[in-house]
Simulated scan of single mutants.
Amino acid sequence: MFSFIARKSMVRAVALLLAAVVSAGCAASSGYPLMKIDVIDTQKLPGAVNETSGLFCTAGGAVTVNDSGNDAVLYFLNENGNITKKAQLDFPNKDIEAITANDRYFYIADIGNNRGNRNYVSVRQLDRQTYKKIKTFRLTYKGNTPSANTPYNHDYDAEALTVREDKLVLFSKSWDTEHARVYQIASSPKSQELTAVQVIKGLPGIITGADWDKANQRFIVVGYNSNLLGVLRPFIAVLASDYRVVSVSPLERFGQVEGICAKANGEIWLTQEKSPLQDARLIRLKIK
């Protein structure tokens, strides 16, 4: 959520500002090849999804969810950003930050933990036809001590979840180290302690959205960093199947990007949350 800027420590903010000045751009600071992208279209989203926090592509468009402070609702969008259908869910929204799916199930990730004080986070499995809850995964992180965490300055927060084959893949935000951790969630048991299977170094900011692009056998992620003035510098990156960073590109015209998904036609769709400086938007682009 946008209010994190005002809450972080001055030391942390100064460090981010200095890093931004030295790097002179997020793609350059990453040290990875610059990705070329072509923005196809961008549409303002309706007020009902101003706090869009996750995105999953469907055959007819995409599905998004709002984060904390909103009801748990699935919003179905077309390519113009219009809401074509809504589905009320039968559980509360503590801090829903991501949505993904396979052929049978939606997975709704209530995993937001900016303050670091949650003892566990949840992923709910829903039937894709009825939207009814089938199962809840209760997740903890190995090594996490919530009482010892400093808000917006710890590594046990996440906003990005995707499905790859038979596993859910979760990417951490990692405020403290800035090295994203990758976790895999098994189909059982319901309660799991997560241990990182990989660490991603060198991205120019925190990850806020991810998708497994099956057609191209790659992960695509979005996120942002910020400076002392609260100006966000969003980016998009491609990761290989083993989580190696392949390429990175800044998203120059945009702000607080939160969701990303890959369409079957090769398009990449993003959603951007409303902020004091920008509207909530649906962004369609292609990676050249």
Results as ranks from 00 to 15, higher is better:
194 L>V: 13
218 R>F: 05
276 P>K: 14
33 P>E: 05
219 F>G: 02
273 E>K: 08
178 E>R: 15
166 D>V: 03
71 D>N: 05
151 P>W: 12
57 C>G: 01
191 S>G: 01
54 G>F: 10
219 F>C: 08
193 E>R: 11
216 N>S: 07
97 E>H: 11
149 N>L: 00
90 D>M: 00
279 D>F: 15
283 I>L: 07
211 D>F: 12
237 A>L: 12
95 D>E: 14
69 G>D: 10
161 L>T: 10
65 V>F: 06
99 I>N: 02
233 R>N: 14
74 L>P: 00
174 S>C: 08
185 I>S: 05
83 I>V: 13
64 T>H: 05
140 T>M: 13
192 Q>M: 05
5 I>A: 13
283 I>F: 08
9 S>M: 02
78 N>L: 00
225 N>K: 10
143 G>C: 13
127 D>R: 05
234 P>G: 07
73 V>E: 00
131 Y>H: 03
51 E>N: 13
92 P>V: 04
214 K>G: 06
225 N>F: 01
99 I>K: 07
11 V>R: 13
194 L>T: 15
194 L>A: 14
221 V>S: 05
262 A>G: 10
151 P>L: 02
216 N>Q: 03
221 V>D: 07
94 K>T: 13
52 T>S: 15
282 L>C: 04
42 T>G: 02
149 N>I: 00
279 D>L: 09
33 P>C: 02
278 Q>E: 13
40 I>K: 11
112 G>Q: 14
59 A>C: 01
41 D>M: 02
271 T>W: 06
246 V>I: 15
111 I>P: 01
127 D>K: 02
143 G>H: 03
186 A>R: 12
25 G>A: 05
15 A>M: 06
169 V>G: 10
248 V>E: 06
